[in-house]
Simulated scan of single mutants.
Amino acid sequence: MHFVEAKGILYSKNGMNLYRGCTHGCIYCDSRSKCYNMPHAFEDIEVKINAPQLLEKALRSKRKKCMIGTGAMCDPYMPVEAELKLTRRCLELIERYQFGAAVQTKSDLILRDIDLLTSINEQQKAVVQLTMTTFDDELCGMIEPNVCRTSRRFEVLMEIKKRDIPTIVWLTPFLPYINDTEENLIGLLNYCAEAGVKGIISFGIGLTLREGNREYFYSALDRYFSGLSDRYRREFGYSYVIPSPDSSRLMGIIDDFCERYGIMHDNDRCFEYMSELPEKYEQLSLF
């Protein structure tokens, strides 16, 4: 872990990354890709120590309330957050200045801040996004080794449901010949239905590989799934998109399930929902 003074904190569409790098160890992580030009080791977390000051300045200068997002490139609830509390301090500012928040994570540490998320949702809007890839906890421990298991994430969803905070689940990625099975998918979808999620985001049944994350992924396959990296090389070569052979059928299962349970499942609509602050909230904030 090392500290930097960032020059800015909000990027396009009002998103922010308080950290850079990650220690969750997910074997498929695209953020390892060399195209992001990270100047340090991925697990050597870069901490934007002045993020709260930059965020407060940005919020005070905005003329219109909006949603503030975090978690797109790095998880805001990595273990270092338990000590540093940058995410919590930023949520406190979002609450104080009456903006909305959309937070994406894999970690149950988000429950520490459920008081702030509840308050933000009551006065404006909060959306919690959780990524779930693998219903079987033992397999999840291989694919996402340093973060809470999927069964625990389901418990997080249920706790958030009690607070009437809307949730979006990212069902992605699915690794061909590992977790791209109907059994895995149905288990995850049943979790979503029981937790009453607002929406599901899925970019197809598969994953993406680029220089940097491809090598890390293949190394993990060699540790846990003997011979599978050779199969990937034969079938996919250096392709960016790595689709499951069963992608169409499994995507059909997602679509049918979401229609049956009234779950929003158009990706564009999910992103619109997470970025829009309803006019009624904006009007209330004027008084």
Rank of each mutant, 00 (worst) to 15 (best):
190 N>H: 11
214 R>K: 05
234 R>L: 11
285 S>W: 07
28 Y>L: 08
60 R>S: 15
82 A>T: 08
123 Q>M: 10
239 S>A: 14
52 P>N: 10
104 Q>L: 15
283 Q>E: 15
213 N>T: 02
177 Y>F: 14
35 C>L: 14
105 T>A: 03
121 N>V: 13
172 T>P: 00
53 Q>W: 05
149 R>H: 03
197 V>R: 04
17 N>Y: 02
70 T>S: 01
73 M>V: 11
37 N>D: 11
77 Y>F: 14
83 E>C: 12
164 D>H: 07
64 K>H: 10
163 R>P: 06
168 I>V: 15
53 Q>D: 14
103 V>N: 06
49 I>W: 15
225 F>W: 13
272 E>P: 05
109 L>Q: 14
47 V>L: 12
162 K>P: 00
38 M>S: 03
119 S>G: 08
26 C>A: 12
258 C>H: 03
193 A>N: 06
225 F>E: 03
59 L>R: 04
115 D>K: 13
62 K>N: 06
146 N>K: 04
269 R>A: 13
46 E>A: 13
49 I>C: 08
286 L>S: 11
180 D>S: 09
41 A>K: 08
240 Y>F: 13
29 C>F: 03
42 F>Q: 04
139 L>S: 09
67 M>F: 08
271 F>D: 03
57 K>F: 03
67 M>I: 15
235 E>C: 06
17 N>R: 03
81 E>D: 12
269 R>F: 11
24 H>C: 08
151 S>Y: 04
34 K>F: 15
119 S>A: 12
87 T>R: 00
261 Y>D: 04
158 M>D: 07
69 G>D: 06
54 L>D: 09
209 L>N: 07
184 N>M: 14
144 E>Y: 03
275 S>N: 14
100 G>W: 05
46 E>Q: 12
153 R>H: 08
174 F>C: 02
267 N>H: 10
144 E>V: 05
253 I>A: 02
5 E>C: 11
259 E>M: 13
153 R>W: 07
249 R>L: 06
208 T>V: 09
135 F>M: 02
268 D>T: 15
151 S>L: 07
122 E>L: 13
100 G>K: 02
